[in-house]
Design a protein around this nucleic acid. Sequence first.
DNA 1: TTGTACGCGTTATCAA
DNA 2: TTGATAACGCGTACAA
Lengths: 341, 341
Amino acid sequence: MSTMKDVATKAGVSKATVSRVLSGKGYVSEATKNAVYQAIEEAGYRPNLLARHLASSKSECIGLVVTNTLYNGNYFNELLSQAAQKLEDTGRQLILVDGKHSAEEEQQAIQFLLDLRCDAVIIYPRFLTIDALDLIIDQCNKPVMVVNRKLRKNQSHCICCDHKGSSFHATKYLIEQGHREIAFITGSPDSPTTLERLSGYKEALSTFNIPVQDNLILPGKWTPTSGAAAISQLLAGKVAFSAVLASNDEMAIGAMKTLSEAGIPVPEKVSVIGFDNIPTAPFLQPALSSIKDPVRDMVNEVINRLISMLDGGYLSHNNLFSSELIIRDSVRFGPYFTSIK
Amino acid sequence: MSTMKDVATKAGVSKATVSRVLSGKGYVSEATKNAVYQAIEEAGYRPNLLARHLASSKSECIGLVVTNTLYNGNYFNELLSQAAQKLEDTGRQLILVDGKHSAEEEQQAIQFLLDLRCDAVIIYPRFLTIDALDLIIDQCNKPVMVVNRKLRKNQSHCICCDHKGSSFHATKYLIEQGHREIAFITGSPDSPTTLERLSGYKEALSTFNIPVQDNLILPGKWTPTSGAAAISQLLAGKVAFSAVLASNDEMAIGAMKTLSEAGIPVPEKVSVIGFDNIPTAPFLQPALSSIKDPVRDMVNEVINRLISMLDGGYLSHNNLFSSELIIRDSVRFGPYFTSIK
DNA sequence: TTGTACGCGTTATCAA
DNA sequence: TTGATAACGCGTACAA
């Protein structure tokens, strides 16, 4: 690879002049400017970004850390594409690195980006605790934003979705439709989101003086298979239920499959609501109502706030974004298995 | 940020010694080693990767270029997660950068990775032509691999899926089931994959002496909506058909929705096959048969070959991977609209 | 308007 | 076993 020095000698000028031409800063005569451009062309010169970033201590890069176990599903796609598109306008590059599958590796990924001298870092955490994240932000001199985790200390460095609130509202909606036996399928036990959605469900029941039944709460793992298994378990136990709230759409889809195989029509006999809103789902299963997370809006806010930290100028703050309940079909009241009970 | 020099003075040694301790190369006494470790701890030292990579001209990074318009869909997810997981084992970092939405920007993204001195680059091209890609590989001194594009010149630098072959076989399968009026929904016109799948369809028809009917070939845009529209067009034109081959699963899903709304049972009256194999689809619509692209296998081969270019030692070559036809439900023969015709 | 010289934080090659 | 010192390629005061 040819360097700036090669270009300089070829054009008969010094390195400094070449640098000036490239950066557009400082005065250069038209004549030498052209000579330099020609030399660049002839040499097939390309700047070495490592050297440039090292010398200038700027990189115009924004890092994003996501665990590869999350490299699937609609949520990640929206996060990534929105971040990339939003950053396009600012002339910065988005760099995704793998958080792999442990808190330690997640932290290493952040360190990697920092060591690469990224201008800022976005974290969509999976394993790191709130305290660990707070500590990282404290110790780090670069702007850091955390998506989907409510921090204890650095609250302006995080953007969250009101999972508990939206779960509460979904449950409330079902109750208002007349449902009283509402099954709930949880997410993986290690996810904070799992707890938030579950607590929203419980709180709504309490608010309406409906007792929480443990046998209506089924453990899931975010997958269609686990959703299907949850319903099988319910049916095998002959537990009465007229509605299902699944902690994501994949599980809701699995649940609906089991229901339909058991000859239980949705939503005539059982209403189903999922979270996260898979785009293709309504095309296949209009009866699946869903709660749509405002991923795009959150990412938007994250980037805005990062830019403001870098350039200044941004003011408004909104930490907690609310989900939207999408009713794809009338959710009707028809308690199932009540007679059997 | 503290540097190696800080650590050196704190430990009472020279930079060179610190470097030796960190790299593990060269002889260092246990005593000074410990002193250095302690100084590193106290200083909260972190290596500057820019400087390291600059000095060593190695980065242990592999770049991946994908257009952000492709940051959705199952295909991208599999590509990304497989690449990340595969690279984990080799101790290298995967860096995804955005190819944005033009050939020029796609090339810039590659240049960016090269300028960052990535050890190798993987391209999943969307806009760059074969010739442009060949040129890039010729001019580039780093290993470059192209996914899903058959190059003219640097054939060992690309891995492809046999789209034409799999489309041929799917069509052949339908013909063998007795179908003769097979509708085909294309992908976006600017995609090479679109042409390959279409030509496989046409070739199969020719092979069995079935005339290609232009009014059975509908333009799609990869989306469920466009698939639905294609079938609407078919029905409005009262064109006879007993099977649909959609160029991806999203369109197949859209097509099935229109069919079911029109009261046409799948697969009893019309058989539908899609490409790419969305994981959740079978949970919702068992009647949708699909052709599964060997994304994981291809990425696997790409990484293997890159590693071999970097480290040496890899031998076998397989440029063209074949898809697998997944029949989710018996595809039956039942020409639709034949009576009307 | 241009060139010189130093710094950015490492690695790597010599001597010592 | 260690320490100077020269790269690595570029940005940038400062001087000319």
